[in-house]
Computed example of a mutant assay.
Amino acid sequence: MRFASLGSGSGGNGLVIEAGATRVLMDCGFGLADSQARLARLGLQASDLAGIVVTHEHSDHIGGVGRLARKHKLPVWLTAGTLVMAQDLDGVAVQVIDSHAAFAVDGLEIQPFPVPHDAREPVQYVFGDGNRRLGVLTDTGSDTLHIEAMLAGVDALVLECNHDAAMLENGPYPASLKRRVGGRFGHLENGQSAALLDKLKHDKLQCVMAAHVSHKNNTAALAQRALARVLNCADDDVRVACQTAGFNWITL
């Protein structure tokens, strides 16, 4: 099992998960040509995908889903709430999922779980191949006991480190946007992410990736430092998914 990022941040998100011959894209917030170019960087074509799973309706996650899915005849999985709010899915083979029920795409088991975020019915996912499990948590404003239960025991974790509290407070956003980003239905702050990671830390955890790092209200170095303190490792040992290049394949 392996995974790689097309890019992560407010400018667009996409994560490819592969188990055997099965490859699924989680979210697509890029234009059609850009999505295809980012897939090519990973040695893939869109036709190599079994489909796209969507977390929620915000444009940096769903903006490119319709065009990619239509052109390459890819099925799309999403919650009923996300479907109500989604645009540009005409002509797409949509499959509505239960936010608490696992489903399979060929050799990949996918477990959605609900998260507190300012969208209609947002979810995040745990992906497994029967031996290894990858947990993904971005676009959530706060931790919950259910999130902790769903991510317990994962072998790898893609974890949001969206903002630094001081940078957000002193940054350029208007007060209303600062409240939204920093609120319980917004995005995780470095300290919140580190506190959650501390609860999830265990011997089998092979890789932790900081993701959805704001370019205005955070830095990669601050995110790395927060997570490295929990993992008792050097800051540079914590990887960061960037907006332009994402990250290359990581094998579990």
Score class of each variant (00 low, 15 high):
Ile52Phe: 07
Thr55His: 07
Glu160Phe: 07
Gly183Thr: 05
Val96Arg: 10
Arg2Val: 12
Thr82Arg: 09
Asp48Tyr: 06
Leu137Gln: 00
Pro112Asp: 07
Asp27Ile: 06
Ala165Tyr: 10
Pro116Ala: 04
Leu227Cys: 05
Val94Met: 04
Met1Phe: 09
Ser59Tyr: 14
Asp27Gln: 12
Glu160Tyr: 01
Thr82Pro: 07
Gln243Pro: 14
Leu222Cys: 05
Leu157Pro: 01
Asp34Leu: 10
Gly128Asn: 02
Lys204His: 10
Asn218Gly: 03
Gly107Val: 04
Ser176Thr: 12
Leu168Thr: 02
Ala195Tyr: 04
Gly186Pro: 04
Ala19Tyr: 03
Cys161Ser: 10
Ala226Pro: 11
Asp88Asn: 14
Ala195Cys: 01
Gln124Pro: 03
Pro116Phe: 00
Leu188Val: 00
Leu68Gln: 12
Ala194Phe: 08
Ala21Arg: 15
Ile110Thr: 02
Ser10Val: 12
Ala46Glu: 03
Gly29Arg: 06
Ala69Asp: 03
Asp129Ala: 01
Arg38Asp: 09
Met26Trp: 01
Leu145Ser: 13
Val92Cys: 00
Glu160Gly: 12
Lys201Gln: 09
Thr251Phe: 11
Ala86Ser: 14
Ala46Met: 05
Val123Ala: 07
Gln243Tyr: 11
Leu145Phe: 10
Ile17Phe: 01
Phe30Ile: 02
Gln45His: 14
Val54Trp: 05
Leu205Asp: 04
Tyr125Arg: 08
Asp236Gly: 12
